[in-house]
Computed example of a mutant assay.
Amino acid sequence: MIIIHDTARISPLSDIEDSVRGTRISIGAGSIIDSFVKIKPAGGMGDIEIGKDCVINSGCVLYTGNGIIIGNRVAIAANCTLAPTNHEFRDPHRPIREQGFRPSKGGIQIHDDVWIGANCVLLDGAILEKGCVIGAGSIVRGRIPEYAIYAGNPITRIGSRGHSDLLP
């Protein structure tokens, strides 16, 4: 089921697939889904909830997997992937595609007022607390504290909003 608020703006060049298994995709008031964004029910039964006044820029891919919750006023830059699921791969005698998926690590949670830079990858179990910033090209798979600024691969804390010794 796809629920889009009347004031959300969805590019006709985006691709939001409806689920055949009952996954719910909800897009809040004033949110913008740019061209070439792909939202795909895959890898689990989780829902995607996008809050109010969010922007998901061109080229992003969101899989439902174990679920994605995005708060209000979140900005996700171009070409990010949100993948709250992991393939099982332990049995070397069976093809990976036949092994299903690993147990959930809780999906992806993005709290209010978060900025995610271009080309980031968020994995199952990522929790981005209120007001944090993720630098371009980062891979996130754990908890990022409120108002912290993290970047790189491996991801490293480089400061916090309002105070940063490491930023120019």
Rank of each mutant, 00 (worst) to 15 (best):
I70M: 14
M45W: 00
M45C: 01
I25C: 04
G125V: 10
S164W: 02
G135T: 01
G43Q: 07
S160L: 07
A136W: 03
I116D: 00
D113E: 15
K38D: 06
G135F: 03
L62T: 03
E129T: 01
I69H: 08
I68G: 08
G137Y: 08
I127M: 07
W115D: 02
P92V: 13
G159W: 05
V55W: 02
M1R: 10
I127V: 15
R141Q: 10
A29I: 02
G162R: 06
D53Y: 14
G159D: 06
I2L: 11
W115Q: 00
L128M: 14
W115N: 01
R97Y: 10
I127R: 15
I149N: 00
S31H: 04
A83Y: 01
I139C: 07
I3V: 14
N153Q: 08
I134G: 00
I134W: 03
H87W: 09
L167Q: 04
R24V: 13
F36C: 00
I144L: 09
L62H: 05
T81M: 14
K38N: 12
R157S: 14
I134T: 01
G152M: 08
P103V: 03
A151H: 05
S35I: 03
V140T: 06
F101S: 15
Q109D: 05
G106L: 14
G43A: 09
I76V: 11
I3P: 00
G71Q: 03
E17M: 11
V114W: 01
E49K: 12
F89S: 08
L123M: 13
N57H: 11
D53I: 01
L166M: 12
K105I: 07
H111L: 11
G22R: 06
I155H: 02
E98A: 13
A83I: 11
D112T: 12
L167F: 08
K40H: 09
D165P: 03
I149C: 04
I108K: 03
R157Q: 15
I32M: 07
C120I: 05
I25P: 00
P145L: 08
C60M: 05
D165L: 12
H163T: 08
E146G: 04
E88T: 13
S31I: 00
L122V: 10
I155A: 09
G137E: 11
F101N: 10
R161K: 13
C54D: 09
R97A: 11
G65N: 06
V55D: 01
T81Q: 11
H111K: 15
G30H: 07
L123G: 02
G71K: 05
E129P: 00
T156C: 12
G117Q: 11
D165S: 15
A148Y: 04
C132T: 09
R24Q: 14
P154D: 14
